[in-house]
């Protein structure tokens, strides 16, 4: 086994754009669930909408600013479509509607009738030109050790992590303010907050939109190093984002970031070790395809252990969760 390579790949995941995208999506989900108590099981839909609403205008020749605005506006509209009928109802209804609508949008973009726009099951590619064009980094390879990337890869990483930092600062500013106090109150008991003269429905909608826009921007970062593939946006993606958020701590600032880093480092490590063991014959009964699935079984087990033994996550406050809610 090439341990150097295995660890090198794993360390590289810490700053990979995919990690940044997952972190950003988890920050958005943290606003929904961690702070406001909204059970959003369709965060994958926001990533999908961000991805397609960015890629389609770009492929049609729109400048990057238009493509980004299109992604943001589409996710705001989607948040309203989800929220208007469900936010007046109990929290469980939002969970059902989000999980279903995430599947609906995934099937919509996969339909062959829309091949001209969405590429159906093949997805979209060739939309990186406008983003690469505004890259100020000169051509070449930079970095050290495991962090050797070309100018485009660095550009994606810098933009991605800058957005993660901006989103974290935004969440920090919001949650220390009276606005944050209201949404945390809604998480605890929305009738109590209503009886104190706050428009609960409006706050829930604001929270849904903010977290949704973060998800859709995460969707843009997610596709910049790869192609748009509808198969990436299954409910599995939503549950990985949930895992990351719970791993770090649902109502914390650094939780989603560190959660995303640990998640991807561990996935990369287990993949490297399993593949290495298979190649060297130590795990002869398994193929590499099966090993890819085993990784996710391990993720599932890890999530269960986490929820059982450390429900507050890495950064969460143990005291907050010691009360039954």
């Amino acid at each position: 086994m090439d341990w150097g390579n295995i660890f090198g790949n794993a360390i590289g995941e810490i700053i990979s754009p995919t990690t940044a995208a997952y972190a950003l999506a988890a920050i958005g989900l943290g606003v929904h669930f961690g702070y406001t108590g909204l059970l959003n099981f369709g965060q994958a839909a926001f990533l999908l909408i961000g991805a397609y609403a960015f890629a389609i205008p770009t492929l049609a020749g729109a400048p990057i600013i238009v493509a980004v605005l299109s992604a943001i506006i589409c996710s705001v509209i989607f948040a309203f479509i989800l929220g208007i009928p469900t936010l007046r109802l109990r929290a469980d209804y939002l969970a059902i509607v989000t999980i279903a609508s995430a599947e609906v949008v995934r099937y919509v973009v996969t339909t062959t009738g829309l091949t001209d726009f969405t590429g159906a099951a093949n997805g979209l590619s060739g939309f990186k030109g406008t983003f690469a064009a505004i890259n100020p980094i000169p051509e070449g390879r930079y970095g050290f050790g495991p962090f050797m990337y070309n100018e485009y890869d660095w550009w994606v990483r810098i933009v991605g992590w800058t957005l993660v930092v901006l989103a974290s600062v935004l969440v920090f500013l919001l949650m220390r303010s009276p606005w944050g106090r209201v949404v945390k109150g809604i998480r605890e008991d929305e009738d109590a907050v209503r009886s104190l003269g706050k428009n609960v429905y409006s706050y829930k909608m604001q929270s849904l939109v903010i977290g949704g826009v973060m998800g859709s921007v995460a969707g843009i970062i997610f596709i910049l190093p790869r192609a748009v593939q509808p198969a990436n946006y299954t409910t599995g993606l939503t549950f990985f984002i949930w895992t990351i958020m719970l791993l770090g701590g649902a109502a914390t600032i650094f939780g989603p970031i560190v959660g995303a880093m640990i998640f991807w480092v561990v996935l990369s490590l287990t993949q490297g070790i399993l593949y290495g063991a298979i190649e060297s014959g130590a795990l002869g009964f398994m193929t590499t395809t099966q090993a890819g699935q085993v990784r996710f079984i391990l993720v599932g087990v890890a999530l269960m252990l986490l929820v059982i033994f450390r429900p507050q996550g890495i950064f969460g406050n143990k005291k907050e969760l010691s009360f039954s809610v």
């Binding site: 605890e188 008991d189 009738d191 907050v193 104190l196």
Partner: peptide, 16 residues
Amino acid sequence: TKSLGRLSVLQNMLLG
């Protein structure tokens, strides 16, 4: 009673 459990007593008050 609908006290907001995971907010401090003071935060509960300020919400009012």
